[in-house]
Design a protein around this nucleic acid. Sequence first.
DNA 1: TAAAAAATTTAGACAAACCTAAATATTTTA
DNA 2: TAAAATATTTAGGTTTGTCTAAATTTTTTA
Lengths: 216, 216
Amino acid sequence: MNTLAEENYLKSIYHLSLNAESVSTNQMAALLNTKASSVTDMLKKLAEKELINYTPYQGVTLTAAGEKIAINIIRKHRLWEFFLVEKLNFKWDEVHEMAEEMEHISSNELIDRLDKFMGFPKYDPHGDPIPDCDGKFKTHDLKPVSAIDVNAGGVICGVRDHSPAFLQYLEKQGLTIGKQICVTDIIEFDRSMVLQMENKTVQISREVANNLLITL
Amino acid sequence: MNTLAEENYLKSIYHLSLNAESVSTNQMAALLNTKASSVTDMLKKLAEKELINYTPYQGVTLTAAGEKIAINIIRKHRLWEFFLVEKLNFKWDEVHEMAEEMEHISSNELIDRLDKFMGFPKYDPHGDPIPDCDGKFKTHDLKPVSAIDVNAGGVICGVRDHSPAFLQYLEKQGLTIGKQICVTDIIEFDRSMVLQMENKTVQISREVANNLLITL
DNA sequence: TAAAAAATTTAGACAAACCTAAATATTTTA
DNA sequence: TAAAATATTTAGGTTTGTCTAAATTTTTTA
């Protein structure tokens, strides 16, 4: 199997690949809290194992084998997050660090049974899709609240920022997964948005609107 | 916190200390599947951290701080084993290796909530006591079946050998935790023992009788 | 109780994953 | 399009935890 460090690199490449064609050394260094030179070392190792496509100075992409491993780690991460929230009653802002450790428990049999135990959930506590045991998943078509107009609305289905600070703020405002919202006004001065919810009105900054995702 | 290797050394010292005053370098090397010289290196490091009492050539014991860490790891191991068997329906011979990884998940809040989720179990699937969140636990007073006489009996409450092969054998014979047994005969030739159970009779070797524990 | 055997420690190396500093390649900009 | 700025890689080191081989200490045994 792969080392913990290798798994974390593959996972990072996967996440960064969602927003770009290929991933740069510096992007990875920033995400992994390490130095570019350390990243280069590891990229050589992963290329040697044929888990990534790497040409010096040109960035990297995952091979099919590398992607499969990355998705499996993400599956584990999200299933453990679901477990922590649904079975152990943790809040959605508390589970990331724990799942970061638990995603490296190696047994696939274990994770498949955990999946079954919880009733094969499709989304984790932050609205991110949980890959099934074959690595398949569908992302629903989401947009940031900031991308919709006055009088439009939808259901909160995800977040872009997963930081505890942001999640705690949303919780406090009642802006949690599944809630219906409608934009009633956009303040011209700073483009902050006024949202109508079932039983109250909240005003959120553009920054928050950018990081809150809804389905139409 | 401590590294994975440090945690495994502390746990090993704890387990080996149960059968002896102090623990030798070679005993540890055997249990940890490593070399005596590697053990010596680690012992110096653990002594430096004041987790063990170590005088060269004289073996080691845990300090109070070291024992606390060891017991916490054992608590995690046994709670995860309980979870795997009771919630995910694994068999008692399948869970050791998985728990060996899971015992290193760092969060104590997580393990305390898991404990609560399962109703604060007192014994793991092999009959070993689960330390509570303060590290306290009672071992019930067990003896090997081999230590009792004809017409004596008791309830199966533990095993000495935790190997899958032994556990699978016991399972097949119906000799599982909680079963009532009574010794009806001891064969003079090889001192194997005939056991009367609720609805059947089984004959076990001296070796098996030595590794099967009962309460009187 | 001295020699032999066994156990333990020390010395010197190695791989993994990281680091800093220097060199090189690419991209930006004037 | 050449110089400057930025990004990336290379070179050389460090730490952790392991190893083998040699040295030393303890224990056993004759």
